[in-house]
Design a protein around this nucleic acid. Sequence first.
DNA 1: TTATTACCCTACTGATTTAATAGAGTAAGC
DNA 2: GCTTACTCTATTAAATCAGTAGGGTAATAA
Lengths: 136, 136
Amino acid sequence: MLSKKTKYGLKALTFLAAQKGRTPVQISEIAKHENISQKFLESILLTLRKTGLLGSKKGKGGGYYLIKEPKDIPMTTVMRVLEGPIAMVPCVSLNFYEKCEDCPDEASCSVHKLMLQVRDSTLEVFKNNTLADLVP
Amino acid sequence: MLSKKTKYGLKALTFLAAQKGRTPVQISEIAKHENISQKFLESILLTLRKTGLLGSKKGKGGGYYLIKEPKDIPMTTVMRVLEGPIAMVPCVSLNFYEKCEDCPDEASCSVHKLMLQVRDSTLEVFKNNTLADLVP
DNA sequence: TTATTACCCTACTGATTTAATAGAGTAAGC
DNA sequence: GCTTACTCTATTAAATCAGTAGGGTAATAA
């Protein structure tokens, strides 16, 4: 299940992408427009800034803004920052790989086999979508 | 992330599918072979039986067995029983649909748009795999 | 019929994660 | 120098997960 963090993060990013210019938008405006708890959104935008997706400006007229063009932001990046691994099990994760403790042999593991396919097809979707594609 | 319940359930089903006949297999045997807590596995097999995927036999020589042939058990069924909704958000779920409270318009929701694609591609994978395909 | 085997069910618990909430701090701009 | 608005830390209530414990019940073989 998608976490609220990811959901809100996606909505906020889409809202920023839909802006005409790249002038800063206040947290309060995003929160209000997307029906999100402002304080919760604050922490989400903060992580997006720390990972280089957003820039921020303090003081009057400040706010958050996209650093890159929406079409140059693939969903793979966004999803990994917000939600973490795209794979459903660590043993098929490209960026967050971990061996299963209980599984003696990955190659013959039925779960591994299935989840590999799921990861690939999901990854394909995220690769084929940029932030620009989400703007209505 | 895939729950242990689903993971163990899949492993148990695969193990049963790999048996030569359809004679009952004891819980203890499955648990031992797949490195699963026996008590936890009990509850998983119980739900699989209740939803009609497995049959059970009591007494000496008892255990669990597959009711249908592995090739006639699509992964969509198995995943929905074990993990629940395949979609990552309720508003794109076929079998567990729910409207988002915070979202005024589904059609223009960026999250909805993206997650619809993810659901479709994941569903495609599960449709194209039966339990028989998981057996090594 | 009796002993054994193995399924069936309920309740509980500790750990972890999620989704906030509260409140204080700090930097930028007018 | 005051306001605005981002930044950071800490706390928390609720939910879910993964597993544990223990007893109950039904079917089978001897």
